[in-house]
Write a protein that binds this DNA or RNA. Structure first.
Lengths: 155, 155
DNA sequence: ATAAATGCAAAAAATTTGCAACTCA
DNA sequence: TGAGTTGCAAATTTTTTGCATTTAT
């Protein structure tokens, strides 16, 4: 997260990359590559979408960014803010999400008993955020993601 | 799941659709559209991939099939066998998965307290299945999914 | 008979990649 | 200076769609 982290890995802090990191830093939720591109382009108008994708890959690889696919066809990214893992609360109406901490424990043991060696897990909760719940039926309540269709889910 | 269910919805039981349902019926895990296509094509050689996709959509819509995206770019499908919702245990090596029941409760209340109206959730556990754990390092242990790369995950 | 379903090929849509030009360290 | 980066355009990859033809009922 410090510029030094980048340098240590032989990565350069270019204008585009710096602005991408700043956009990520000031975004509380997860954003799609398109959204990030739009926001980065506000200050670096010539930035290309492929640069955004490439940097997101690089930063994910470097461990600074966390990529999640919630199942609607758009990968989302956010700054990795905590060391531990976390999960997501996703609004099916405006598409915004927030991090939540993991409400499940003992997974390794539970499935290890069946001979399954657990390496990780993901937990996503879908629903209506306070804003969207209140303004139900009046059209998307924001400059949310592109065409956010409710992802498939059980429950 | 009964042929009658299809008829009731004005759907015809074509050769291709019947074979797709049979393939799904005898598959314990989730399969990608490609895999289903390959398997259906064993008995209905002329079946096209778009027919598979179209039928999967239709059957999902009809509630007979359940579609899940685990985050590696391939949507997976399986027969909806139980009424209640369920989750998945996914092998990051061979890509196969099995259903597990939900180990989390009280989600509605937990997030409802924050003003978030929960409509559903998804829980996916990643790791090595017994077969892949034992044969580690000897190449994929099966006719698993296409290029199964480990999905991104926390944990 | 006829509405639904199919196959094919072309279209979409998200993401990746090749390459020459550029730029940060 | 020169290896890492970028922009652009073209390519990939999964899934969807248009349309003429076939088929289940």
């Amino acid at each position: 997260m410090e510029p030094g982290d980048l340098e240590r890995q032989g990565l350069r802090l270019t204008r585009q990359r710096r602005e991408l990191l700043e956009v990520l830093r000031r975004s509380p939720g997860m954003l799609t590559a398109e959204e990030l591109h739009r926001r980065v382009a506000q200050r670096q108008p010539a930035v290309s979408l492929s640069t955004i994708y490439r940097n997101l890959d690089i930063l994910t690889e470097a461990g600074l960014v966390c990529k999640v696919e919630i199942g609607d066809g758009f990968a989302r990214y956010e700054l990795r803010r905590t060391e531990g893992h976390h999960h997501h609360l996703v609004c099916v109406r405006c598409g915004r999400s927030e991090s939540i901490h993991c409400p499940v424990t003992g997974i390794e043991e539970l499935f290890g008993r069946r001979g399954f060696q657990v390496t990780g897990h993901r937990f996503v909760v879908y629903g209506y955020c306070p804003a969207c719940r209140d303004s139900a039926g009046t059209g998307p309540a924001s400059d949310g993601p592109p065409g956010t269709r409710a992802p498939d889910r059980d429950g």
